[in-house]
């Protein structure tokens, strides 16, 4: 579904992606591990062209994202993106955050959009917070609304950029629970995270990135329990 082909990216003189190649298959959950600065967030941001690349290709269902005929706005509707800092729209309620895209892009009627948004809020356990402004929600609740907002657009794949890193420890669980259910229901997911436990339990594949390259990849049992690479061993020692 998503294919990275020798993807390269520079920030000025500094190379952050140094030839990343990998495949994400439909229904697969891929977890990206790596220390900060390893390029894992940058990598998933290339999928929706939040980051431009300077070398290689990113393909979505076989289509080169850099191609001329690509309608990036249409493509972004098919790719849900969840940010570390939630990025809810502070001037809209939880419900309003979700209905905005449904009404303006999907051209749903107000009642229909509302109904759909309520379904999504219910799915993340926040139906009772529909009319709350983001400022009145806890971090964990905000992230669940952000997930609901992305899901409402019926994406083919969900990208998570460190979804629990900005949360207080006691709120991590509620967000991971939602993500786990999502994975069990067959959603294709790419998750950048430091939660090794989540990777071990939910991921089909783990990619370990170091200095802009995938240095190890495979099923979690293999990668996490028998780490071959020295950098991965020291990473796992640190996060455990």
């Amino acid at each position: 579904m998503i294919r990275f082909e020798a993807v390269e990216k520079w920030f000025g003189q500094q190379q952050v992606l140094a030839g990343v190649t990998g495949d994400v298959k439909r229904g697969e959950v891929v977890t990206l591990l790596g220390s900060s600065g390893s390029g894992k967030s940058t990598l998933i941001r290339t999928v929706t062209r939040l980051e431009a690349i300077q070398g290689g290709k990113v393909l979505f269902e076989g289509v080169d994202l850099a191609g001329r005929g690509v309608d990036i706005n249409r493509l972004r509707q098919r790719v849900g993106f969840v940010f570390q800092a939630f990025n809810l729209f502070p001037h809209l309620t939880a419900l309003g955050n979700i209905t905005l895209g449904l009404e303006r892009l999907r051209k749903m009627s107000k009642p229909l959009a509302r109904e759909r948004a309520m379904t999504e809020l219910d799915r993340v356990g926040l139906a009772d917070k529909a009319d709350a402004l983001p400022s009145r929600l806890s971090g964990g609740q905000r992230q669940r609304v952000a997930i609901a907002r992305a899901l409402a657009m019926d994406p083919d794949v969900m990208l998570f950029d460190e979804p629990t890193s900005a949360l207080d420890p006691e709120m991590v669980g509620e967000v991971l629970r939602v993500m786990r259910t999502l994975a069990q229901n067959g959603m294709t997911m790419v998750v950048v995270t430091h939660e090794v436990g989540f990777a071990r339990e939910v991921a089909d594949t783990v990619w370990f990135l170091d200095k802009g390259q995938i240095v190890e990849s495979g099923p979690p049992a293999e990668v996490l329990d028998r780490p071959g690479h020295e950098r991965l061993r020291s990473f796992l020692a640190k996060v455990h």
Binding site: T48, R74, R76, F81, A85, R104, M153
Partner: peptide, 15 residues
């Protein structure tokens, strides 16, 4: 990041 979040949903610049 607000702009990024809006673009990520699929809105164009003007939207």
């Amino acid at each position: 990041t607000q702009y990024e979040a809006a673009r990520s949903i699929g809105f164009n610049y003007l939207q």
